[in-house]
C-alpha cells in the first residue's frame, strides 16, 4: 500500500517532465511529416516557462480559480490512477477536472471561448461512454475496479476486449486535441475559433492549462498501458506506436464538424463496446 502511494507521488513529479518531452517529440514528428525542421525537443518547456514570466492578464479572476482546480483534479486523477486506486473514481475525477476547465472558459464572455466550451462539453459527452465502458470491461476481465489488481492480472487484456480498446483509441484523438477532432481547441492557430476553449487564457493561466494537459497525456497513456500490462516491453512499444498513429492521423485529415464527431464517437463506442461486453459476459458466466 505504501509503495503505491510512492508511485503516486512519483507521478506527480515526473508526469510534467514526461508529458512535456512527449509534446516536444510530437512537435518534431509532426513537423517532419509536414516537411519542416520543427522546434527543439525542449520547446514545450521553453514555451511554458515563458508563459509564467508573462504578466497575468485575466479577464475575470474566477477563471484563475477554475484553472487551478482543473490542474489539481487532473493531478489527483493521475496520482490516484498510478497509486493503484479505484478506476471508477479516476474516471469521475477526470470528468470533474474537465468541468472546471469548461467553467473557466465560460467565465469569460468571449464568443470564441464560449463556443469552445460548448464544444468541449460535447467532446466530454463523446469521450465519457467509451472510458466508462473500458472500466467496466476491465472489471469483467479482472474482477476488480482497482488499478493495482488490473495491472497484476495475468493475461492479455487487449485480447479479451479489443473492441473497447478501439473505441477508446477513437476518442483518444479528441483528448489529445488533434485533427480530425480538434474541435474545441488545438495546438495550432484555429481558423474557426482561434484557440477555442483557451482563447481568453493567457500568461500563467495558460501555462497551468498546458501543464495539466501534460499530466492528462501521461495519465491517458497509462490507461492505454493497462491493456498491455501483461508484458511491459510490448506495452511500451504499443504506446509509442499508438502515439505515432495519432500524429499520423492528425496529419492526414481535415477538421470535421462537431456533430459528426459526436455521432461517430457514440456509434463506434456503442457498437464495438456493447458487442465486446456482451461477448465477455457470456464467456465468463
Amino acid at each position: 500500500m505504501n509503495l503505491n502511494i510512492i508511485t503516486g507521488i512519483i507521478f506527480l513529479i515526473l508526469a510534467p517532465l514526461i508529458g512535456g518531452l512527449i509534446a516536444g517529440a510530437d512537435r518534431i514528428v509532426t513537423a517532419r511529416m509536414q516537411g519542416r525542421v520543427g522546434p527543439p525537443l525542449l520547446q514545450p518547456f521553453y514555451d511554458v516557462s515563458k508563459l509564467f514570466e508573462k504578466e497575468t492578464m485575466v479577464v475575470t479572476t474566477t477563471q484563475y480559480v477554475y484553472v487551478v482546480a482543473y490542474i489539481v483534479f487532473i493531478a489527483f486523477t493521475g496520482a490516484l490512477f498510478f497509486s493503484g486506486g479505484d478506476i471508477l473514481l479516476v474516471v469521475f475525477a477526470l470528468t470533474l477536472a474537465h468541468v472546471f476547465l469548461i467553467m473557466g472558459a465560460y467565465a469569460s464572455r468571449s464568443p470564441y471561448s464560449v463556443i469552445g466550451a460548448e464544444r468541449e462539453l460535447i467532446m466530454l459527452m463523446a469521450f465519457e461512454p467509451a472510458i466508462i465502458l473500458c472500466a467496466a470491461g476491465m472489471y469483467l476481465v479482472s474482477k476488480s475496479f482497482f488499478v493495482r489488481d488490473i495491472i497484476s492480472y495475468n493475461g492479455a487484456i487487449i485480447l479479451l476486449i479489443p473492441g473497447l480498446f478501439f473505441a477508446f483509441l477513437y476518442v483518444f484523438t479528441m483528448k489529445l486535441r488533434k485533427s480530425p477532432f480538434d474541435i474545441s481547441t488545438s495546438h495550432h492557430a484555429h481558423q474557426e475559433l482561434i484557440k477555442g476553449l483557451t482563447t481568453d487564457f493567457s500568461g500563467s493561466v495558460l501555462g497551468i492549462t498546458e501543464i495539466a494537459h501534460w499530466y492528462e497525456t501521461v495519465f491517458l497513456l497509462g490507461f492505454i498501458y493497462l491493456f498491455f500490462a501483461f508484458n511491459p516491453v510490448i506495452g511500451i512499444i504499443a504506446l509509442i506506436v499508438i502515439y505515432l498513429l495519432e500524429i499520423y492521423i492528425d496529419n492526414v485529415s481535415a477538421r470535421v464538424r462537431w456533430s459528426f464527431a459526436l455521432k461517430s464517437a457514440w456509434i463506434i463506442t456503442a457498437v464495438l463496446g456493447i458487442v465486446n461486453i456482451g461477448i465477455l459476459f457470456f464467456r465468463w458466466w
Partner: peptide, 22 residues
C-alpha cells in the same frame, strides 16, 4: 476515400525538411 494524404506524409518523412533554420 480517407487518408489520401498518406503518400505525401511519408514522402515528407523520408526526405530532408524543406525549411531552413534561418
Amino acid at each position: 476515400g480517407l487518408f489520401s494524404m498518406t503518400k505525401m506524409v511519408f514522402r515528407s518523412v523520408s526526405r530532408k525538411p524543406a525549411t531552413l533554420m534561418y
